[in-house]
Design a protein around this nucleic acid. Structure first.
Length: 289
DNA sequence: TTCCAGGGTAAGC
DNA sequence: GCTTACCATGGA
């Protein structure tokens, strides 16, 4: 297996199964998933990440997908100096921001509203098997690409409901249709100012403030986006700064002024640390993994 | 049985 | 403008 050397660690489980991406499964000591139309197999190594890719040239994208680059160490050193983040950064050093496909991130986070990670993973996989393209590795492992917006739109609301999308079915169908028609050009939003990109996303059905920030952060490379969800609000309420947890606008403004371009990575640490603490306290919830 | 999950929408003030 | 009920589904 080729090795991607990384000066800083890469926490594969926290990064791949922590609610950013939804197509990763554990296979023994390795993680197998589909990203950007490629099937990847990743395994933690003392000096980096060992990988195999199908098709093989997809390996060129592994570093970018995992957020491996010189910027990570710098961002960590800035965030680790913040008393609000010190503990979380220390505990989860190696947690990465994944660089995902804009449309897949959009579809997945439309499905994420008032939903849980496990079920989102099931829905995204079901979409791939229903409307994606079946591929096979040379050694016979079948996998499915994530379907494009036209293919998702063509499934129709009724079929999406049958697949378990619930009340989000019409949102996903309409958003897929809008993207397929080119009324919102997702990839171009990467190069636009974050506020403009955010406004464009909010025009999509099923995309509100929080989902828009997730798409900006995980699918469009806007590292300053700061999704405010239940867990971040919980963190504010319990041990965060003196803010109203029920006022997402205020929380976002705080994050923006405090962490700037690093806000998205900061959010990942807060989200992950708060969620892990909650799961441990829940006992049975932690066992279910 | 009730609560909860990476919320969004629209009706009602 | 702000608050509130409702929205499917499955696991704990």
């Amino acid at each position: 297996m080729p090795l991607l050397p990384t000066p800083e660690p890469v926490l594969l489980e926290a990064s791949l199964r922590g609610g950013q991406a939804f197509r990763w499964r554990r296979r023994g000591d390795a993680w197998v998933g589909v990203a950007g139309g490629h099937r990847l197999r990743l395994e933690s190594h003392p000096d980096g990440v060992a990988w195999t890719a199908h098709p093989p040239e997809a390996g060129d994208h592994v570093a970018a997908y995992l957020g491996v680059g010189p910027g990570y160490r710098d961002a960590l050193s800035r965030l680790a100096r913040d008393p609000l983040l010190e503990e979380a950064v220390d505990a989860y050093r190696g947690l990465r921001l994944l660089d995902q496909d804009p449309w897949e991130a959009t579809a997945a986070f439309v499905l994420s509203s008032n939903n849980n990670v496990r079920r989102i993973e099931g829905l995204v996989e079901a979409l791939a098997r229903e409307a994606g393209t079946r591929r096979e590795t040379p050694d016979g492992h079948a996998w499915w690409t994530f379907p494009g917006p036209g293919d998702v739109a063509a499934l129709g609301e009724a079929r999406l409901r049958e697949m378990g999308c619930g009340y989000r079915a019409p949102y996903l169908q309409e958003t897929a249709a809008l993207v397929a028609r080119g009324q919102v050009d997702l990839p171009s939003l990467t190069g636009r100012p974050v506020d403009e990109a955010r406004e464009a996303l909010l025009a999509l059905p099923g995309v509100g403030d929080k989902v828009a920030d997730c798409i900006l952060l995980f699918g469009l490379g806007h590292g300053e986006a700061f999704p405010v969800d239940r867990w971040v609000a919980r963190w504010i309420a319990r041990r965060g700064p003196d803010l109203d947890p029920s006022d997402p606008e205020a929380v976002r403004a705080f994050a923006r002024s405090r962490w700037g371009e690093d806000a998205g990575l900061a959010q990942q640490f807060l989200f992950h640390a708060t969620r892990e603490a909650g799961l441990e306290a829940g006992g049975s919830a932690a066992r279910s993994r």
